[in-house]
């Protein structure tokens, strides 16, 4: 464990908690893409299948349980509990254009042609593009609530910190994983536009609004 990975995990956890609290407290999922949350639930499910078979540490297991449980809770709130507030008209990104190519790619490019490894690879590829429906929705509505932009910032920063974690581990622990690194780079690049807007607008107290 190194500081970058730890801060990355904390940032990821706080993003998940921010979103859960936003929906639960405001009893509304306005502005939130249910499709992205569905993709995250798939990402965690396909990545943590070894949750019960491969114990690494209490921290690792408990974080995985929290991630999986909270992602399902978020999907449940959006599509069931508060579905009346779900803005389906603006959440129109075609997720099959994300799921199918990443699934095919995970069969073609992976470290080991075994079910668990292919599912892990699929989850890595899918995670790198899972935020697209949410970013697409923000661009369609032209704006995002401030709390939603904090959620997106924390979520984007987590994988950026993981990039530093991989540099650290390459340097000091003598290994790297090209699949995770390339997917992490793609994921971080997708946030660049949002990071720019967040830093130039939200941090100055303005509302996040995209040029429609």
């Amino acid at each position: 464990m190194n500081i970058f990975r730890f801060l990355g995990d904390i940032s990821h956890l706080s993003a998940i908690i921010i979103l859960l609290l936003k929906i639960w407290k405001s009893r509304s999922c306005a502005g939130i893409s249910g499709k992205s949350q569905l993709l995250f639930a798939i990402v965690f499910t396909t990545r943590y299948l070894d949750l019960f078979t491969n114990f690494i540490s209490f921290y690792n297991t408990s974080m995985k349980v929290v991630y999986v449980a909270s992602s399902y809770a978020t999907v449940w709130m959006i599509y069931s509990k508060f579905k009346a507030t779900y803005d389906g008209n603006h959440d129109t990104f075609r997720v099959e254009f994300l799921i199918v190519p990443t699934a095919i790619l995970s069969f073609l490019v992976n470290h080991d042609f075994t079910p668990l490894e292919i599912l892990w690879t699929f989850s890595i590829y899918l995670e790198s593009v899972a935020i697209l429906p949410q970013l697409f929705m923000v661009s369609k509505t032209g704006e995002a609530e401030t709390i939603t932009s904090h959620y997106l910032f924390a979520l984007g920063i987590y994988r950026t910190l993981y990039l530093f974690n991989w540099i650290w581990r390459y340097q000091f622990e003598e290994f790297f994983d090209l699949i995770a690194i390339v997917a992490g780079l793609v994921q971080t690049v997708l946030y660049c536009d949002f990071f720019y807007l967040y830093i130039t607008k939200v941090l100055k107290g303005k509302k996040l609004s995209l040029p429609a």
Binding site: I56, W120, F175, F176
Partner: peptide, 10 residues
């Protein structure tokens, strides 16, 4: 450099 043995990451 050994590759891909960081299944200890989330």
């Amino acid at each position: 450099k050994r590759e891909n043995c960081h299944k200890d990451e989330l």
